[in-house]
Simulated assay, not measured.
Amino acid sequence: MLTKKDVVDVLMGCKDPELDADIVNLGLIYGISIAEGKDVKVTLTMTSAMCPVTSLILADAQLRLEGLPGVGKVELDLVWDPMWNPDMMSDELKYRNT
């Protein structure tokens, strides 16, 4: 049976190559639901609607989630509301270069 922690852990390996940071700590994950212990739906956003690496990030996340043992259907729901802003980043990322 999959847990939200399993999903978060695997998504921490999915990085935005332009920012060299994972999508979890960037604050791009808005929600995770798991149905019947195996079907995963992740609601997420990008840093910008014009993000040139959106397709790469989504493909990487999809592949990583599909590789989880026991996973069923994987759905990524890309949303733009609320719009992402730097305040959504983890404190670790906000202050890593200060």
Rank of each mutant, 00 (worst) to 15 (best):
M1V: 14
L2C: 03
L2N: 02
T3C: 13
T3K: 10
V7E: 02
V7S: 01
V7L: 11
V8I: 14
D9P: 05
D9C: 06
L11I: 05
L11G: 04
G13W: 00
C14Q: 02
K15E: 01
D16V: 02
P17N: 12
N25D: 08
N25V: 08
L26M: 11
L26E: 06
L26I: 05
G27P: 09
L28H: 02
I29K: 03
Y30S: 05
G31F: 09
A35R: 04
E36R: 12
E36N: 10
K38N: 09
D39S: 09
V40I: 11
V42L: 13
V42W: 07
T43M: 13
T43K: 13
L44C: 05
L44P: 08
L44A: 00
T45G: 08
S48Q: 06
S48Y: 00
A49E: 04
M50K: 07
V53P: 02
T54K: 15
S55F: 15
L56G: 06
L56H: 04
I57Y: 01
L58S: 07
A59V: 13
A61G: 10
Q62F: 15
Q62G: 12
Q62A: 14
L63T: 11
R64S: 03
E66H: 05
L68G: 15
L68V: 12
G70F: 09
G70C: 07
G70P: 11
V71E: 00
G72V: 00
K73I: 08
K73S: 07
V74E: 07
E75W: 10
E75C: 07
L78W: 00
V79Y: 05
V79C: 08
W80V: 03
W80S: 04
W80D: 01
M83Q: 12
W84R: 06
N85K: 08
P86S: 13
D87S: 15
M88Y: 00
M89R: 07
M89E: 10
D91N: 15
E92F: 14
L93Y: 05
L93D: 02
Y95N: 11
R96T: 09
R96V: 06
T98I: 14
